[in-house]
């Protein structure tokens, strides 16, 4: 075999080693061995996962709880124990995240259970956390005519955010799906010592 062919073969083998160790083996050893007891996620939460990915939420939020010797995640109350592979086994999008410009969301469905809180945060994060860098997701909401009493999901807005008279602001389908997804994030059961951020 000539030298260039040897180099070419070497490159293919080196890439193959990486694929074997970091793709094929995890798929065999850490992938879904049997269907999970709760079944695969379905419905609005699955669509919400896609909304989460499409809007780049993983650019600022992680979904992984590190062990106590590698960070304060558990002490912060973000989860009672470190994340395990089994908690992700039915997911096609695994948004582990790259940066923490906001809290970890692996277990946010346990910490915050009220949909209205999420709607309020998504519509105008600064009313919940003054000075935050989180952008507003008001494009996921709709302004609709107010016919009689406000709809159950309508946001109570005041000041600059308030809609014109005769209108109300309600979450659109994508906002509802995103909140359903966030509420479904209960990867790690909350311990008694858990805190709310």
């Amino acid at each position: 075999m000539t030298e260039p062919k040897r180099v070419l073969l070497g490159i293919l083998l080196a890439t193959g080693v990486g694929w074997l160790l970091l793709v094929w083996m995890p798929l065999r050893k850490l992938g879904p061995i049997r269907p999970s007891a709760d079944g695969a996620p379905f419905g609005r939460a699955v669509i919400g996962g896609k909304v989460y990915a499409a809007n780049g939420c993983a650019s600022c939020h992680t979904q992984v709880i590190r062990p106590p010797n590698l960070g304060s995640d558990i002490a912060r109350g973000w989860g009672a124990r470190r994340s395990l592979p089994v908690e992700y086994q039915e997911e096609h999008i695994v948004p582990l995240g790259v940066l923490r410009l906001g809290p970890d969301l692996a277990d946010v469905g346990e910490r915050r259970t009220e949909p209205h809180w999420y709607y309020r945060l998504l519509y105008d994060p600064r009313t919940v956390y003054p000075g935050t860098v989180m952008p507003s997701y008001r494009y996921l909401f709709s302004r609709v005519p107010l016919l009689g009493s406000p709809l159950p999901d309508a946001l109570s807005l005041s000041g600059r955010d308030a809609p014109p008279p005769g209108f109300q602001v309600v979450p659109g389908p994508k906002a509802r799906a995103l909140v359903a997804y966030l509420l479904s994030l209960k990867r790690v059961p909350l311990g008694e010592t858990g805190k709310t951020p």
Partner: peptide, 30 residues
């Protein structure tokens, strides 16, 4: 050579319904 080899393998695997769980994370970072 690396870009089509790895890009092709990754793109095909990500569209396989059987590929799910944390293996997607290790595939992504590989």
């Amino acid at each position: 050579v690396w870009i089509p080899w790895a890009g092709g393998a990754a793109a095909l695997m990500l569209h396989d319904p059987a590929v799910r769980g944390v293996a997607v994370g290790s595939l992504e970072w590989w």
